[in-house]
Design a protein around this nucleic acid. Structure first.
Length: 356
DNA sequence: AAAACGGGGAT
DNA sequence: ATCCCAGTTTT
């Protein structure tokens, strides 16, 4: 490492020692100096939850998960269904499926202990290049180049990397490897990410109070806010469908069913509905309802946006007698139990529109 | 290499 | 409305 890089690294670690945010899964720099070791299970769980997800959204889920399943062995012993219920609302549900797979693998093949190298971590389900490096650095003090969206933004500015993403990834990874110290690699990674989250923000970065304001090449060129450059993204199409909320006239129970295990919202709970097509349907969809009506259309059209399309769902409700109806593919759920079901947000919106 | 995969908060 | 987030897996 060059002398310049060493000074750059040190100035950020000094900033981190003074400004590190307290987080439920983080061991503070002070506590670490006092000998506290981060729990690999908690680091892993937090890092998976944080994939494409904000710190604010993760906090409560992390506390709920670690309270229910304090160790990886507890999670391995859990039922898949209970993990999906606990994950409901957090999004990217393949993460919850892979979380359980990973816990099972660690319990069965590694004696309940996470492997302590980047390469071995990378082999586990749901752990990709970012998460493997983050766990290796934070939980095991390995010299790993941790690169997430924050690091891409911060380092593209620090090094004036004008290559658009994703082509710039190798260059950024190399720069992060050069900057990362062998002493405190995990704190350094967290410092860059904290910097990106609080100061080197996508818009209006606070360069005046940045610990790297002197050495930042983009700032010195007046280009900080223009970086990183990114390839233009595709626009989202709109899809349309109908959802059917069947309510038992006697008990108020709602008819629910399980979605297929893979794909969009895989393994989650839903109310019956039509396919989601790219053209607005002008025909009466009640023929596709699970039971005979009469179905009445709700005024509120549910709008929801997924990663790659907008969805507009017309909601129908029917109050019928559950007795005598065969619950082939689903079950009747008491209305008071809806909150604990594995219902994704779009389905909670549907139920709100049907029941208000 | 490109697409699939959620949801919410900030602007 | 748009962007973006402590990305990974599948095609």
């Amino acid at each position: 490492m060059t002398e310049t890089n060493s000074l750059t690294t040190k100035s950020l670690l000094d900033w981190y020692d003074r400004h590190a945010r307290a987080l439920p899964w983080r061991v503070s720099p002070e506590d670490r100096r006092l000998g506290e070791i981060p729990d690999p299970y908690r680091i892993w769980l937090s890092e998976v939850m944080l994939q494409q997800t904000t710190v604010a959204a993760v906090k409560d889920y992390f506390i709920k998960f670690t309270g229910t399943w304090p160790t990886v062995m507890d999670l391995a012993a859990a039922r898949q269904e209970d993990v999906m219920k606990a994950w409901a609302g957090l999004g990217y549900y393949s993460r919850a499926r892979n979380l359980k797979k990973c816990a099972d693998t660690v319990a069965r093949d590694h004696g309940g202990h996470f492997p302590d190298t980047e390469d071995a971590l990378l082999k586990l389900p749901g752990i990709g290049p970012y998460t493997a490096a983050a766990i290796a650095a934070i939980a095991f003090d390995r010299h790993a180049a941790v690169v997430d969206g924050n690091v891409e933004r911060v380092l593209s500015r620090l090094g004036l990397i004008e290559t658009p993403l994703p082509d710039a990834k190798p260059e950024i990874k190399a720069l992060m490897g050069t900057l990362t110290p062998s002493d405190r690699p995990g704190d350094f990674a967290q410092a860059v990410m904290d910097l990106g989250a609080t100061i080197c923000t996508p818009k209006r970065p606070a360069c005046a109070i940045c610990p790297w304001t002197q050495e930042c090449r983009a700032r010195n060129e007046g280009l900080a806010e223009t970086l990183p450059r990114k390839a233009p993204k595709k626009e989202k199409p709109v899809r349309f469908g109908a959802a059917f909320v069947a309510r038992d006239a006697k008990t108020g129970s709602i008819y629910l069913r399980r979605r297929p295990p893979k794909g969009l919202l895989g393994g989650m709970t839903e109310v019956p509905g039509t396919d989601w097509r790219e053209t607005g349907q002008t025909d009466d969809p009640s023929g596709q309802a699970p039971f005979a009506g009469p179905w009445t259309k709700r005024m509120t059209v549910v709008k929801h946006t997924f990663t790659h399309f907008h969805l507009r769902l017309t909601v129908y409700r029917a109050d019928i007698s559950a007795a005598g109806i065969e619950a082939n593919d689903g079950w009747w759920c008491p209305v008071d139990d809806l909150n604990s079901e594995a219902l994704p947000t779009v389905m909670r919106k549907v139920l709100a529109a049907a029941l208000d």
